[in-house]
Write a protein that binds this DNA or RNA. Structure first.
Length: 454
RNA sequence: GUGGACGUAGCUCAGCUGGUUAGAGUCCCGGAUUGUGAUUCCGGAUGUCGGGGGUUCGAGUCCCCUCGUCCACCCCA
């Protein structure tokens, strides 16, 4: 019989059990902190109607979306017609659809978190995935939403990454209004031109100042040399403290309405972040943060690891003026952020900041004599009742093999209940990690393991 | 979508200018008698050299096509 090669498509992350444990605990930490800040979980379907998902035609998204079709629909499909369904490529568009659809049943400001997989038909590349987890929080207001919520988001992010223990990080903050207002004073008018310039500026850390200068003064942009210099000088600013950030804002001088708005928002947001308990060492005003996505209108965020700049942004988001304009006439402003958990996990593992997890199986009851199986099951029952995850060897075999199994499966404790132990009403507990073993009274085994596992 | 590199055991790779049955490490499996893993020792399994065609007495090695993978750009988590 021909053998089919067992393989996954490129761009998916499939983990061995102990790595899966590590990934799960990362997701658990994220969820715990989202909930701690009063966000509620929702889930939306993996598939959405294509016309809902692709509200803006002809963009990048259409190139990257996976369409879904049942066999019947495939056969009935007409030439040149898009399939009815598609896989979501982020969680923000489904959120917009969700809020618009359930607007009357939701309580505003609506604070939701969502941790689900999304799909993008990307060209396979290192550290880029076609199926990956996004962990999003957003606050959606009805008609209006205070800029104070813009300060709450970094507080959540601070708590998440502190919990993950992956080293020092900085939440970098900027404001699109401020940037647009400042670009106007440079003579760069109009949203598309400004967005294009900001996209280049956004690459500053990756490409370097001179490469960006060359692009800006090149044929596509045609910026004057002194304007480009002024711009590069301006966006080079990174605050080292809250006072330094506020002083920089004060020093901007007066400008357009957009600049004044952006400045006022940034002042309030930066000051309040401090009040939310985020240490000054962990957030900064960074005037080069722009974000590529064009729907951001105010505050924008990007988080980086201080000791691993090459990893890039591990979490990003911002403020948008109208979330669901494609689906409802209601005005729904919001602010949110997204953690790309799959990529983050992969990069942390590459950088050696995350190892394999520990098996969730805590104890293994060995089999010394098949006739004593009922005793083994009884012991396992007691341990489980005491909250210890316990497995029993059900197949007879050499003891050495049973130990090898425990070792390879990453199970820390092996319990022996043989004739000697039965006679003494005791259990021999071997700790494979410490390579020690002792014989303990039957009634104290659970408490002993609990203490050791703590 | 544009441009560029690379395809040899499950994994990491060696194989000099074409020359016998294609190798190493690792991993996997088995053994080293009694109720003890990971360490040590011994033994074993595994490849249409990505696929197809061509040049040649002879191709893992040279040429063409094709498929696949990876990298950069675009974009983004």
């Amino acid at each position: 019989m021909a053998i089919t090669q067992a393989r996954t498509m490129p761009g998916v992350l499939e983990l061995l059990p102990l790595d899966q444990v590590a990934f799960q605990s990362m997701l658990d930490a994220i969820r715990r902190n989202f909930e701690r800040f009063g966000f509620l979980a929702i889930e939306t379907p993996v598939m959405e109607y294509s016309n809902v998902l692709l509200t803006k035609q002809g963009g990048e998204t259409e190139r990257q979306v996976y369409f879904v079709q049942s066999t019947g629909a495939l056969q009935a499909a007409r030439e040149g017609e898009l399939p009815e369904l598609a896989l979501r490529f982020d969680l923000t568009v489904p959120l917009a659809r969700y809020v618009a659809e359930h607007e009357r049943e939701l309580v505003f400001p609506f604070r939701r978190y969502q941790m689900q997989r999304v799909y993008r038909g990307e060209r396979a590349q290192r550290g880029r995935f076609r199926e990956f987890y996004q962990c999003d929080i957003d606050v959606i207001g009805k008609d209006q939403l205070s800029v104070r919520y813009d300060a709450e988001i970094p507080a959540v992010i601070y708590n998440v990454f502190r919990d993950l223990r992956i080293g020092d990080f900085t939440i970098q903050i900027n404001n699109r209004k401020l940037m647009r207002g400042w670009l106007e004073t440079l003579g760069i008018q109009g949203a598309p031109a400004q967005a294009a310039v900001l996209r280049e500026v956004d690459k500053l850390d990756k490409r370097g100042a001179e490469a960006v200068r060359a692009t800006l003064t090149g044929a596509d942009f045609g910026l004057a040399a002194d304007a480009a210099s002024a711009l590069l000088d301006f966006v080079a600013f990174r605050s080292t403290s809250l006072d330094a950030a506020l002083a920089r804002l004060d020093a901007l001088g007066s400008g357009s309405e957009a600049l004044e708005q952006g400045r006022a928002e940034l002042r309030e947001v930066l000051t309040l972040i401090r009040a939310f308990g985020v240490p000054e060492s962990h957030f900064a005003l960074n005037l080069s943060i722009a974000r590529g996505l064009d729907y951001y209108t105010g505050t924008v965020y990007e988080t980086t690891l201080n000791d691993h700049p090459q990893i890039g942004s591990i979490c990003s988001g911002g403020r948008y003026e109208n979330l669901a304009g494609h689906y409802t006439r209601s005005h729904l402003p919001g602010v949110g952020i997204s953690i790309g958990a799959t990529r983050l996990f992969w990069q942390l593992r590459e950088a050696g900041l995350i190892g394999s997890g520990r098996s969730t199986v805590e104890a293994l009851v060995a089999q010394l004599d098949e006739a004593d199986l009922p005793r083994y099951l009884g012991l396992a029952g007691e341990l489980r009742a005491a909250g210890i995850n316990t497995e029993v060897i059900l197949e007879a075999g050499k003891l050495a093999r049973q130990f090898r199994y425990a070792d390879r499966a990453g199970i820390r404790f092996v319990l022996l209940l043989g004739s000697e132990e039965i006679a003494r009403d005791a259990v021999t507990v071997k700790d494979l990690r410490a390579a020690t073993q002792e014989t303990i009274a039957r009634g104290e085994v659970a408490a002993h393991l609990r203490a050791a596992l703590r």
